[in-house]
Design a protein around this nucleic acid. Structure first.
Length: 359
DNA sequence: AAGGCGTGGCA
DNA sequence: TTGCCAAGCCT
C-alpha cells in the first residue's frame, strides 16, 4: 500500500533524470559522446575501469591529467599489465591512495592472464578483481556494459538522503539509501542513468549550497519540501587528527644524485619512492633517534615539511647533507640526477625536496 | 567492523 | 588557518 506511490513514480523520475542528462552531461575523456551513445556504442571497459579506480575519493579535475597520461602510455589493459611496477607507481605519484595503484596493476595482470585481456561484464566477476569493490563493480558493469546495476557512491547517498529526507546519519543509513537507489534504477539506459545520478550529485545536489532551483527532481524532493537539503546527509562526528613528528634525510651526492628508497609495499605511501627517515610518532612518545642513512655532515633545515594525511598531521624535520663520491649508504640508493624526477614522488616527499633542493 | 589510507580546493 | 569534502576498498 504505502509502497505503491514511490514505486510508481520511479520510472518517471528516471526518465526525467535521463532527459536532464541528455541536455547537461559533461564531456569527459572516459565517456563516449551523445551521438555514439545513440548508435549504441559502448565505452571501452578498460577506460571505464581505469577512470573509476582513479575517481575513488578523488575529484574529476585531479583525475583528468592522470587519465590522459595513463591511456596515452598504456592504451590497453594488456599494455598496463606488462608495465614495470616502479613506472606505474611513479605515474600515479601525486594522485594519492597508493594502494589503488598497486591493486590497479594486480587487476590489470589478472584480466590479462585469466580473462584473456577482456574485462568481465558481470558484477560478481568484476567484484572478485583486486581494488574493485561494490561501487566500482556496479559502475563498470552499468557504464561499460549497460547492465542494470545500482551504483551507490557518495553522490548517490547524498541525492537519496535528500530525495527521501533521510536523517539517519551515515554510515548507518547506507543500507536504507542503497535500497532507495535500487528502487529507482531503470531497466532502460542503466549506464547513462548511473552517470546521470552521480552527475546530479556532483553539479546540482552538491554538499554545500545545492542548486535546488535547477534540479530536475526538485518537485519530488522531500528535503526540498522540508527545507533540509543543505544539512543532509547527516554524518557521524569526525575525530580530531593528532600530529606526528619525524625526521627525513635528504642526501645529495656531489655529482647531483639523490639518496632515495622504495617504501614497503604495505602501509602509508606503500610502494612509493621516499626519503629515508625515522618513524613518525606523536610528540608524547619518545622522539625517534637521529639515524642518518649515510655518514656525512648533516644540517637541519629551519623549516619543517608540513603535510596532512587522512588521519593525522605530520611535521617532518628535514636534515640535509652533501656527500662525497664512493661513500656507501646503509639505506636506500642514489638515483643519478638525469633519472630523478620530483614528480615521481608522493606529495609529502616532493614538499620535502622543494624545501631542501639547492637554490 | 571500524580504522587505515592522499591530496588539493574551497568556505 | 582550519576543517570539510571528493565517482571507496581493504583488513
Amino acid at each position: 500500500m504505502t509502497d505503491a506511490a514511490p514505486t510508481a513514480r520511479a520510472p518517471r523520475l528516471a526518465a526525467e533524470l535521463l532527459d536532464w542528462y541528455d541536455r547537461h552531461a559533461r564531456a569527459m575523456p572516459w565517456r563516449t559522446g551523445p551521438a555514439a551513445r545513440a548508435d549504441g556504442v559502448r565505452p571501452d571497459p578498460y577506460r571505464v575501469w581505469l577512470s573509476e579506480i582513479m575517481l575513488q575519493q578523488t575529484t574529476v579535475a585531479a583525475v583528468k591529467p592522470y587519465f590522459e597520461a595513463f591511456t596515452a602510455r598504456w592504451p590497453t589493459v594488456s599494455d598496463l599489465a606488462a608495465a614495470a611496477d616502479a613506472d606505474v607507481m611513479a605515474a600515479w605519484a601525486g594522485l594519492g591512495y597508493y594502494a589503488r595503484a598497486r591493486n590497479l596493476l594486480k587487476c590489470a595482470r589478472a584480466v590479462a592472464e585469466t580473462h584473456d585481456g577482456v574485462f568481465p561484464d558481470s558484477h560478481d566477476a568484476l567484484l572478485s578483481l583486486p581494488g574493485v569493490g561494490p561501487y566500482t563493480a556496479a559502475a563498470v558493469s552499468a557504464i561499460a556494459f549497460d547492465r542494470p546495476e545500482t551504483v551507490v557512491d557518495g553522490n548517490v547517498e547524498r541525492v537519496m538522503a535528500r530525495l527521501h529526507d533521510e536523517h539517519t546519519p551515515l554510515p548507518a543509513a547506507k543500507p536504507i539509501l542503497t535500497e532507495h537507489a535500487r528502487a529507482l534504477t531503470p531497466p532502460v539506459r542503466p549506464g547513462d542513468y548511473a552517470q546521470a545520478v552521480m552527475d546530479l550529485g556532483a553539479t546540482i545536489c552538491t554538499p554545500r549550497n545545492p542548486a535546488c532551483g535547477l534540479c530536475p527532481w526538485r518537485t519530488d524532493c522531500a528535503a526540498w519540501a522540508a527545507g533540509t537539503a543543505p544539512e543532509l546527509p547527516k554524518k557521524a562526528p569526525k575525530k580530531v587528527k593528532p600530529t606526528r613528528h619525524g625526521i627525513a634525510y635528504l642526501a645529495r651526492r656531489v655529482d647531483g644524485a639523490w639518496l632515495l628508497e622504495t617504501r614497503p609495499e604495505t602501509g602509508l605511501l606503500g610502494g612509493m619512492l621516499g626519503w629515508p627517515g625515522t618513524d613518525w610518532v606523536s610528540r608524547d612518545a619518545a622522539l625517534p633517534d637521529d639515524a642518518p642513512p649515510i655518514r656525512a655532515e648533516w644540517r637541519t633545515l629551519s623549516e619543517e615539511a608540513r603535510h596532512t594525511f587522512t588521519h593525522f598531521h605530520l611535521r617532518l624535520t628535514l636534515r640535509v647533507a652533501l656527500v662525497p663520491m664512493d661513500r656507501a649508504p646503509c639505506r636506500g640508493e642514489f638515483i643519478p640526477a638525469p633519472e630523478f624526477r620530483p614528480a615521481d614522488l608522493p606529495t609529502l616527499m616532493r614538499k620535502a625536496f622543494d624545501l631542501a633542493r639547492p637554490r
